[in-house]
Structure formats: C-alpha cells, structure tokens
C-alpha cells in the first residue's frame, strides 16, 4: 500500500515493537504451507541459514560495538528474524495474488533473496531500536555494515527494498525513509563498486540488444 499521511500517523515505532515482541521466532503455519507447496521444500535450508547468519552477525556485532553488547546484538537479530519471517509471508501472499501461483520453489530456495530479505529486516530493527545500548559506539554498525557482515552485494540488497516496504504495512515513515536513504546510497555509489553484479547485467543486456543496426554517420 502506498505511503499515506494516515498510515504515517497511525504507525508508530511502538506498533512494530509490539508486533515483533509478540511474534514467533519460527515460521508461521501459513509460511510453512508455502514451504510445503514448493517442489523442493526450502524449510531446512531457511532455518539453517538463519542460524548460520545469526552466529556471524552476533560475533561481528560484538566485535564492532563491544563484547559487553553481545546480548543486545542477539536481541536485535532475534527481532530481525521475526520481521524477516513476517515480511516473507506477506510478500508471498501478494505474489500469490499477483501471479495466481502457490509454488515459489525457485524463489524460496534462492540464497541471495533470503540473505537480502534478512539483511533488510535486521537493518530496520537496528535503525529502529538503536544500534547499541549506549549512544556512543553504535555508529560502527551503520549501513552498509550489514552488507559486509552478510557478504551481500549492495545491488542484491537493493532488489528487496521496495517489495519490503510494500509488504510491511506497519513500517513507520522514519523506517521507510531509512530504507530509502539506503536505496539512494546504493544507486549513487555502492552498486557501482568494482565487484558489483550490475556490470555483468549491463554486459548481458548489451549482448541481448546486439550491434546497432545503423550506426549514426560520424559528423565531419
């Protein structure tokens, strides 16, 4: 749903906090049924990835913010995972309506999709709850820190931003603004770094276009 003044006023940080504080740490039954509809059931790989990335995130968070903040990192990640499952379910519902299909095997078995979605959810939680208990040393985890920690290309993170905003109705205006700033930063610089997948895509689309039919005559 597009951003509206009413939505902005209605949605407060407390609303999302309440939702996340009461949400489950595990995929919902709805989400499980989407997994079961897949040609290749992605459940085990999804749970394994959440666990693996969790270990990396908590370790890097403690390294960056301070060993005294290990518990905070763990809490941030836990809420991020809850948001990740919530948004995934919402995305699948709207994709199901849009495409009239129920088998999302290829998408739900795509590591980049899940890593991008999880990174967005954790980024929103950190931006909302604050990046550390104390105000001073949380800056080290500002965006794009999460991309380095999850070894995720900025361009791949960029792909989920709009769908994430569409799928999560309880995002506040500030949270949406935060994702938008991340988006701009990616478009303006991060997506153009040398190892970006963007260059291969440009090359592929050039090859698909083929040579120009009638190159313009060179002007004298």
């Amino acid at each position: 749903p597009p951003q509206t003044p009413v939505r902005a006023v209605m949605n407060t940080i407390q609303q999302l906090m309440m939702i996340l504080n009461t949400a489950s740490d595990q995929p919902s039954e709805n989400l499980i049924s989407y997994f079961n509809n897949c040609t290749v059931n992605p459940k085990e790989s999804i749970l394994k990835r959440v666990e693996t990335i969790g270990c990396i995130f908590k370790e890097k968070f403690a390294e960056t913010v301070g060993q005294g903040c290990i518990e905070i990192g763990s809490q941030r990640y836990k809420l991020g995972v809850r948001l990740y499952y919530r948004v995934m379910e919402s995305m699948l519902k709207s994709e199901e309506e849009r495409l009239s299909i129920q088998n999302f095997s290829k998408l739900l078995n795509d590591n980049t999709f899940h890593t991008s979605l999880l990174a967005s959810a954790v980024e929103i939680v950190m931006a909302t709850y604050g990046r550390s208990g104390s105000q001073n040393n949380g800056a080290g985890t500002d965006f794009p820190w999460i991309l380095n920690v999850l070894d995720l290309k900025a361009f791949d993170f960029y792909k989920v931003i709009e769908s994430f905003i569409k799928a999560e109705a309880s995002l506040t205006r500030e949270m949406i603004k935060h994702l938008e700033r991340c988006e701009h930063r990616i478009m303006e610089s991060l997506a153009w770094q040398s190892d970006s997948p963007l260059f291969d895509l440009i090359k592929q689309s050039k090859e698909r276009e083929g040579p120009a039919d009638h190159p313009e005559p060179t002007s004298t």
């Binding site: 999709f113 709009e162 769908s163």
Partner: peptide, 21 residues
C-alpha cells in the same frame, strides 16, 4: 520530504528481480 517513490512496474516483483520466474 516527499513520500517513497514506488517504481516497480506491474509485472515486476521479487520473483522477477531475483530471476526466479
């Protein structure tokens, strides 16, 4: 500040964006 600009076209969603269509 202006609202978020939704730029994806009708036929575009995460399935297409991640080449999973």
């Amino acid at each position: 500040a202006p609202d978020y600009h939704f730029g994806l076209e009708d036929g575009e969603g995460v399935r297409e964006l991640f080449d999973c269509d």
